[in-house]
């Protein structure tokens, strides 16, 4: 299987004064369509860097990153922007909603950037995902009027509204209490089951890891080993192996 995400000998270095920080060292990884994958590791291990490269908001120092069949290193900023808009959904640790827009407008925002849909079609899409995350009654409220868990649900709705091939979530439960965090992971997993959307998210929370289909462990910029979480997901890829 070719994988919806492929990293081949990917290196990411950051210059820090006179020192170079090796954030990723020759990482090889393939993630197939429909997988529900956790990138696990302690703080500073390279989880976020890995997600940033997959999310096309950063570029590798060396190696090749293929997302949805496209080699990101060869794309212009405009092409990368288009790839992010059309193929990737983002869920951030701090929710990163646009505070001046209400919930409905936040969710609709990526669709407006995409263009091409009529107002009625956009409304239908927004209603669909807002219902899916259970926030219909809050649709006209502003983000600062919602709880952390509700905000993260909005972020999930915003990530899903364009029906992306991949949803990336950087520590989506880090700012939530454990119950809410579990609910969020369950919601993501449910969507993964229903729509076969590929979810890749980072965490260092063991409880969250247990709910993933596949856990990719990273330490000091290197992938450690393959591992299976307790629950096997619906992924047909059998992607529990880390292709290192």
């Amino acid at each position: 299987m070719s994988g919806i995400v492929r990293l081949m000998d990917v290196v990411k270095d950051y210059p820090l004064g006179k020192v170079t920080v090796h954030a990723l060292r020759k990482v090889n990884l393939t993630i197939d369509k429909g997988e529900f994958t956790v990138i696990a590791g302690p703080s500073g291990s390279g989880k976020t860097t890995l997600l940033n490269l997959i999310g096309c908001i950063d570029v590798a120092t060396a190696g090749e990153v293929l997302v949805d069949g496209k080699s990101t290193g060869k794309l212009t900023d405009k092409q990368l922007t288009s790839l992010r808009l059309n193929s990737i959904g983002f869920i951030f640790q701090s929710f990163n909603l646009i505070n001046v827009l209400d919930i409905r407008q936040n969710v609709e925002f990526p669709l407006l950037l995409q263009g091409g849909l009529s107002k009625a079609e956009r409304q239908a899409r927004v209603d669909d995902v807002v219902d899916k995350v259970g926030l219909r009654q809050f649709a006209s409220q502003r983000p600062n009027e919602l709880s952390g868990g509700q905000r993260q649900r909005v972020a999930i709705a915003r990530a899903l509204v364009t029906r992306p091939a991949i949803v990336l979530a950087d520590e989506p439960t880090a700012n939530l209490d454990s119950t809410t965090g579990t609910q969020i992971i369950d919601l993501m997993k449910e969507i993964n089951h229903q729509d076969h959307t590929t979810f890749i998210f980072s965490t260092h929370d063991e409880k969250v890891m247990k709910r993933a289909d596949r856990v990719v462990r990273i330490l000091d910029g290197m992938l450690e080993a393959a591992g299976l979480s307790e629950s096997r997901g619906p992924s047909e890829s059998g992607g529990e192996q880390v292709h290192a």
Binding site: T81, S82, R84, L85, N96, I98, P110, Q114, R158, T162
Partner: peptide, 16 residues
Amino acid sequence: TREVGTMRAIGMSQRR
């Protein structure tokens, strides 16, 4: 800045 980063990440172009 973070808001700009978010908007860029979710697909907003430099021009916009």
